[in-house]
Simulated scan of single mutants.
Amino acid sequence: MASEPQGGLTGYITHHLTHHVLVLGDGGNPFMRINLDTLVVSFLLGALFCLWFWVKARRATSGVPSKGQAFVELIVEFVDTQVKDTFHGDRRTVTPLALSIFMWVAFMNAMDLLPLDAPGWTVKAAAGEEAAHHTFFRWVPTADLNTTLAIAVAVLLIVFGHAIKAKGAGGFGKELLTAPFHAHGVGAKIALAPANLLLNLIEYFSKPVSLSMRLFGNMYGGELVFMLIAGLFASWLSFVPGVVFNTAWAIFHILIILLQAFIFMMLTIVYIATAHEHH
């Protein structure tokens, strides 16, 4: 959190890549380690999204909308259009899910645009420079693999739920054993069942890996670039070049922030649509 590198550029980056960890259980053999910064920031951003849309929904009018209402309606209509074009079933639950994923992920990604050292400056002002050196806080939840993997696993469970709802538990289980290699005889079906099951499990479980690693990799890389720029241009003599480079990267990074949220949302919709298809 220091405003200038401690122990050189490597020390500066290492400091900013360290989470504020809450250890549960014995220190030598902890039951669980929780990245408290990730948990708090992601929860607050999710609450902020819900509060924002709830307030706009409560104040919505049928007449000429305010700028805030028009902006929210634009987002909802955009997401609903994507769902309508991809998923051809009942989208009453799919659109809210897609909207929540898009907005929440976009909010978490956007934390990367805030000043890297702001938490450190706050601690330094309140408790002194020494406290700032020993305070760790990463406020980009999607640059933490725990966050992206947790959301991706939740999406996978939702996909399983849609598959079971569309085909029934028996139908879904049968599909796992009989597709993609179809056979007509009982013996052939039994012989191909292990291969079908293996391929389907690989297909299903590769989805959360792909979702989580893509989002994590892009946001972690973006965060690292900000750290490199801040560390390389930390002195007052290079303040102006640092601002220029940070601004240029931030403008480009806005595209990445929105694009990654859009991709995560679209893949979720595609996975749900695929779960309703019969093979």
Score class of each variant (00 low, 15 high):
Thr135Glu: 02
Gly185Lys: 06
Tyr204Phe: 15
Ser62Trp: 07
Phe71Ile: 06
Ala193Cys: 06
His15Phe: 08
Thr61Tyr: 01
Met111Cys: 15
Phe53Ala: 07
Glu77Val: 03
Met213Gly: 00
Leu228Asp: 02
Gln69Cys: 03
Ala143His: 06
Val72Gly: 05
Tyr220Lys: 12
Leu24Ile: 15
Asp80Pro: 00
Phe264Gln: 04
Ser42Gly: 04
Phe31Trp: 12
Ala118Gln: 13
Phe102Leu: 15
Asn246Arg: 09
Ser62Glu: 13
Phe181Asn: 08
Lys67Gln: 12
Ala169Glu: 10
Ala261Trp: 04
His19Gly: 01
Leu157Glu: 09
Ala60Asp: 13
Phe87Asp: 03
Glu129Trp: 05
Val23Ile: 13
Phe245Trp: 11
Ala261Arg: 02
Thr147Pro: 01
Trp52Arg: 12
Pro65Ala: 08
Gly161Gln: 10
Leu74Trp: 12
Leu97Asn: 05
Leu45Asn: 02
Leu74Phe: 14
Pro115Ile: 07
Lys174Arg: 15
Ala169Trp: 12
Thr61Asp: 07
Pro96Trp: 04
Leu114Pro: 07
Leu199Ile: 14
Val79Ala: 09
His16Ala: 01
Ala143Gln: 09
Ala106Thr: 10
Gly28Glu: 09
Val159Cys: 08
Leu17Pro: 00
Leu149Ile: 14
Gly170Phe: 12
Tyr12Ser: 08
Ala60Tyr: 04
Gly168Ala: 11
Leu44Phe: 13
Ala47Phe: 08
Phe102Gln: 02
Leu176Pro: 01
Val155Leu: 15
Trp236Glu: 14
Gln260Phe: 07
His184Met: 11
Ala126Phe: 11
Ala125Trp: 10
Leu45Ile: 04
Met227His: 04
Asp117Leu: 04
Thr122His: 05
Gly11Pro: 07
Trp54Gln: 09
Ile34Trp: 03
Phe31His: 03
Phe137Ser: 03
Ala179Thr: 13
Gly187Tyr: 04
Ile229Gly: 02
Leu113Arg: 04
Leu74Lys: 13
Ile13Thr: 06
Leu99Asp: 01
Ile101Lys: 00
Leu97Gln: 10
Leu157Ile: 14
Val123Pro: 00
Asn109Lys: 01
Gln69Met: 06
Ala132His: 01
Leu267Lys: 08
Trp121Ser: 10
Tyr204Val: 02
Phe31Leu: 14
Ile34Arg: 03
Pro208Tyr: 00
Val243Asp: 02
Phe245Asn: 01
Ile151Met: 14
Arg33Val: 00
Val159Gly: 03
Phe172Tyr: 14
Phe239Tyr: 13
Glu129Asp: 14
Ala261Cys: 11
Pro194Trp: 11
Ile256Asp: 09
Trp121Arg: 12
Leu211Gly: 00
Pro115Asn: 09
Gly8Tyr: 10
Pro119Lys: 13
Leu224Lys: 06
His20Cys: 04
Leu116Phe: 07
His16Lys: 06
Ile272Gly: 01
Ala193Phe: 03
Gly231Ala: 10
Asn29Glu: 09
His184Trp: 07
Leu197Arg: 03
Met108Gln: 10
Val79Thr: 11
Arg92Thr: 15
Ala195Asp: 03
Ala57Cys: 05
Trp52Ser: 12
Phe226Asp: 02
Leu197Pro: 06
Asn29Ser: 14
